[in-house]
Design a protein around this nucleic acid. Structure first.
Lengths: 328, 328
DNA sequence: TTGTGTTGCGGAACCGGTTCCGCAACATTT
DNA sequence: AAATGTTGCGGAACCGGTTCCGCAACACAA
């Protein structure tokens, strides 16, 4: 099981190692030599040492992926998509987790650079000056997923449009007393853009909106659901994420209210199992996995120097289900 | 932003690069020289090139993690735990996905070896001769999570005991007509051990058991739930996983049955949100995240040559909730 | 004073590749 | 036939570290 090296190959084939290297990297090598080298490589199962390669060439076949958490539905689906495509193209995915700390995003940007990844896909929440600085410093292509910024190539979910479309649907169905349960604004896409899409739809229809703010965690939304259940001052609770919807539903159930009988609830994001719950939950499906694949494609394009648009939108799909009642 | 190298440090400090290397790796260096080198390193922000290091030392600070899927709840929670601990200890996690193909597990074992990871954590489903061969070939510590095998260090969930305990509880509650919905046997831990634990409890109480087999996917369990709903020939449906329980619940709801009014249902595995569903689902909670951390600890121990038990069990916790009725 | 250890440090080889340079052999043009 | 390109290939330097070896300086025991 000892490493076979390029020297061994050279010796066995009776050529110089530079020739072997050229053979491997597609330089000019005569047919006869080519055959000899090929045979020897076959026989010995030779595989170049990646460290030696990277040492000189200062490049790897790795794409770094920075994720805020490893156990979110969105992140893991996206990673699946990325990994699939990257593997196809002979690249590897190196996942690093930031545990939702902005500071660590920046740290990891530099860290991945140190590891000479060829490119970086970043599932971001906020883009600060220091992020931009880091991206500029490291001189490596970066693709941002889920947030947008004028200076970084980004692949974003159509949060505004999707929220607007869903909100409009609710208006068409006659809902006018709305409670919106959102998240903090530091997550631009979810905390601001998504909310603004909804509000636009609501405002256009002249609906009455009350707003709550919570975290991304199910548990934090339960008391809000309970409170809403006791007051019952709206016909529909619009939640910024499926997790929040889950929590609100629980809170409502705890308060003895039924959905959609007493009140309607909608989510956003498209957990698979929202469909199999009872009642099934109205939500917006975002194509995480496919977005991952596209991201992989795009970062590889950036590597080869192709120009791609600074900002690309993904699609969305409304999932209109049982949890929201049609009033008219 | 040019790389600072050990040569630069040596030159600036007026010493030989071997001395700098010794300084970095804790060799014998005099106090005066030590100070000089330290100052220069501070000033230049020097960071050793990892490829150059690995080239000679044939080692990295990476632990490979082989997972069957990136988007399973269990896998992502486990990865979180692994990553946390590894990061603390100055190691990095390199995740590779096998998309549930046994063949790729073996491939990845060799592949990770090629990349000179220091150790491998393997979330396995089946252990074959070829796996063992690979593990032996690569000469790298491997820790198996979730399955067991006499020849591989493993960290396993107490599937049998947990299933037995839960089954026993159901018996105590007076359930005697049981339907067990399991998965294929190729996944030893879930398909066999877990099932056997349940069956043992059921048999001891002389209960009547009918068995179905399905996949790990929610959708495949829905028709089974529907069928059960129409026949209604049991008081309790025991599912091998939470996903299956979700599907069965949907099928039952489609058939117009209520849980636990018409029939009880239990899951296994402990999705977080099983608690917030309505009804909340009785299940077994497995400590995925903590298992990940422990796995990280264990693999690091193996690296330092410590001996650890070949087989370690994790804990479990019964979550007795609304979806299973107490008959007596 | 001489002999015997230590300790600190420099020099050089080495890890396994890539790349630059130059030469020889052969083909093509003038 | 001489001049000029090509093409194929070997030699050597280089990437940035680690490690072996040996020498000099110093301390201490004999």
């Amino acid at each position: 099981m000892k490493q076979v090296t390029i020297n061994d190959i050279a010796k066995l084939a009776g050529v110089a190692k530079s020739t072997v290297s050229r053979y491997l990297n597609g330089g000019s090598v005569g047919q006869a030599t080519r055959d000899k080298i090929e045979r020897v490589i076959q026989e010995t199962n030779y595989e170049p040492n990646q460290f030696a390669q990277s040492l000189k060439s200062k490049q790897t076949k790795m794409i770094g992926v920075i994720v805020p958490r490893l156990d979110s539905y969105a992140a893991s689906r996206t990673m699946m998509g990325i990994d699939e495509r990257l593997t196809e193209r002979g690249y590897q995915m190196l996942v690093v987790n930031t545990a939702q700390q902005t500071e660590r995003e920046i740290e990891q940007l530099y860290n991945l650079a140190k590891q000479k990844v060829a490119g970086i896909i970043w599932l971001g929440t906020t883009v600060t000056e220091r992020h931009l600085q880091a991206i500029q410093d490291i001189q490596i292509p970066v693709l941002l997923i889920g947030q947008e910024h004028g200076h970084v190539h980004s692949l974003v979910y159509p949060d505004f449009d999707a929220a607007y479309a869903l909100g409009k649907q609710f208006m068409d169905w006659g809902h006018r007393d709305i409670i919106y349960v959102g998240v903090e604004e530091y997550d631009i896409a979810v905390g601001q853009t998504r909310r603004d899409g909804f509000l636009r739809a609501f405002n256009e229809a002249g609906a009455d909106v009350k707003t709550y703010t919570t975290s991304f965690k199910i548990d934090d939304a339960i008391p809000i659901g309970a409170q809403i259940g006791h007051e019952l001052s709206a016909s529909l609770v619009v939640c910024a994420t499926d997790n929040i919807a889950l929590g609100v539903l629980k809170g409502l159930a705890n308060a003895g209210k039924t959905v959609p009988g007493d009140i309607s609830v909608s989510g956003f994001g498209g957990y698979d199992f929202t469909e199999v719950l009872h009642p099934s939950i109205t939500t917006v499906h975002l194509p995480y996995r496919r977005t991952g694949s596209r991201a992989a494609d795009m970062i590889l394009q950036l590597l080869t120097g192709e120009t791609i648009p600074m900002k690309t939108f993904t699609t969305f799909e409304l999932k209109l289900r049982e949890s929201v009642d049609i009033l008219n």
